[in-house]
Write a protein that binds this DNA or RNA. Structure first.
Lengths: 148, 148
DNA sequence: TCTTACCTACGACAGCGGTAGTAGAACGCT
DNA sequence: AGCGTTCTACTACCGCTGTCGTAGGTAAGA
């Protein structure tokens, strides 16, 4: 199951990944437009550099179509999120997620809907989690769009 | 109250901050020992550089004692945690904390104690919490937000 | 006083991430 | 055939971060 050692992505690289997650496989030019839409007005060749580096890192794959390469993400947004959070928790709390989670809950504002959803998740924890074999195969129902 | 725009700390710098958080004000040599204990065997002057840079960033303060300067943190671990998480949430979920929190809850392992604690926190949210006037739904990502 | 040990200031360097320019290939139009 | 457009490959540069080394002060012993 050899997991990635550490997916190290910069801020701009992350935004490129977002473009791929949110809109599927795209060409360099497409991604550039996504970035421009989100306020990052970078040059075409900059985006090309990003995608090339991301491919070297093994997190995107390219595919020659027509004239231009089409790039697609090889990793899910979830995996990046978890990897980041894990790094955060390790760095700040020696790997103990609960304290950080508690702090997060205390400091963020949530809507009633979100709260009840979170409660549901928590409730699900002690029923599902204890049974040795983890039966956590249910997908996040409110997952944003498509992932990889 | 002018808050820091963004506390940008590298991994090693963060470990220095941890030393200060966990053990209070210390000299360069003290911090070096803490880092060594935690497996980061860096040279004395490296630690000095870290602390100097951190002071330039305004997150630690120094104080001449005896022969050596004593450094102390000017920011809390909590503020750094929140700042980091906020960055993460902004970068990956456009500022919507709940989905990320949900993912975190689903993917982490918690002890029964932790679970009941979390439940208590959640329960506390809709009672004692401020009546949400939140406009955070899809955050405008390029608005200069001030955290903590 | 000379030496030793410790402290700080300053400079250096490499790797990475963000950013872009230039050169050359490939395609389509006139 | 020649021209403009578009794509990729390559190179470069800057700032930040991690990492030290060296030089020059100063306190404490020998």
């Amino acid at each position: 199951m050899a997991k990635k050692v550490q997916i190290e992505l910069g801020e701009a690289e992350l935004e490129v990944m977002r473009a791929l997650w949110d809109h599927g496989p795209q060409t360099v030019r497409d991604v550039m437009h996504r970035l421009h839409e989100r306020g990052r007005t970078v040059a075409y060749t900059t985006v090309l550099t990003f995608l090339t580096r991301l491919e070297q890192k093994g997190v995107v794959a390219s595919d020659k179509r027509d004239q231009a390469y089409v790039y697609k993400s090889k990793i899910s947004r979830q995996s990046v999120t978890m990897s980041r959070i894990k790094a955060l928790v390790d760095q700040l709390y020696d790997g103990a997620a609960a304290p950080m989670l508690a702090q997060l809950i205390e400091n963020e504002r949530f809507t009633p809907d979100e709260i009840s959803h979170l409660r549901k998740l928590i409730d699900h924890l002690d029923t599902g989690a204890e049974s040795g074999v983890d039966a956590r195969k249910n997908a996040a129902k409110n997952a944003p769009k498509n992932s990889n």
